[in-house]
């Protein structure tokens, strides 16, 4: 059996002036090629967990390693392996789509013809090629979301992290994103994504970890096999109480 590509042990994150820790002893292992969904209600700690795993934030305690490399020891190397799609539209709106892709691509170690080809390929794949010369600020939310996704795919990462990648977009854009995610997962890319859309998780994920109060409270393997029951499981594990 192959080793996990992501290993999280005893992760704790305590924000200053917060009564409770945002992440409270989280353990997680992700196997190569998995499509893992981190599901949880608002404020469960999903974004904080993914931020720590990708190196955006530092943990109060606990360890995170990606392909056996501790993030705290060699973040630079880990960042070559991973791709990260933030919850926000993390793009420079004054720049064109191509300028955004060129800038982020160069940071990811691509250049010249290779970068242009890869950018064109992804723009074509997401239906954005014809408008690649336009400034992002003039685009619709769905187009921005698609570009937000493909920036993280430029260097063909081995592991892709997505933080609610389909928030606030139209059905067509969401379907295109799902399709693309399916495709890249099929080529062997490990995908970890957070959401509170259960239907989306059922459709995409090979495994779902349910998070509440900063730690894993349950797990559903092969959610597609339990279609329609994920919501019931989710509510059983996280309760029906309203969240802030």
């Amino acid at each position: 059996m192959s080793a996990p590509v992501i290993r999280v042990q005893g992760l704790v994150k305590r924000y200053r002036n917060a009564d409770e820790p945002a992440v409270n002893g989280m353990d997680l292992e992700v196997m190569p090629g998995e499509f893992l969904g981190l599901l949880g209600p608002n404020g469960a700690g999903k974004t904080t967990i993914i931020s720590i795993i990708t190196g955006v934030r530092q943990a109060t305690s606990g360890t995170v390693s990606i392909q056996g490399i501790p993030i705290t020891r060699d973040a630079h190397e880990v960042h070559r392996i991973i791709g990260y799609v933030p919850q926000d539209i993390a793009l420079y709106e004054a720049l064109t789509a191509r300028e955004n892709l060129t800038f982020f691509g160069e940071l990811l170690g691509l250049s010249g013809q290779r970068l242009r080809q890869r950018a064109d390929e992804l723009l074509e794949r997401t239906g954005l090629l014809a408008r690649a010369g336009e400034r992002v600020k003039d685009w619709s939310g769905g187009m921005k979301r698609r570009l937000n996704l493909i920036v993280a795919l430029l260097h063909e990462p081995a592991i892709l992290f997505l933080d609610e990648p389909t928030v606030g977009i139209d059905v067509q854009s969401r379907a295109a994103i799902w399709e693309l995610l399916h495709e890249i997962n099929a080529t062997g890319t490990t995908v970890v994504y957070t959401s509170h859309h259960l239907e989306e998780a059922e459709r995409l994920c090979s495994r779902v970890v349910i998070i509440d109060n900063g730690r894993a409270v349950g797990e559903v393997s092969d959610p597609q096999a339990h279609k329609g029951h994920l919501e019931e499981t989710f509510l059983r594990m996280t309760g029906r109480g309203l969240r802030d």
Binding site: V56, H79, I82, Y84, D88, A90, F104, L107, L108
Partner: peptide, 15 residues
């Protein structure tokens, strides 16, 4: 920082 670009930059090579 507000747009999330900073978070993205923090997950890319280069300090």
């Amino acid at each position: 920082r507000n747009s999330g670009c900073m978070a993205r930059l923090l997950t890319m090579p280069g300090g």
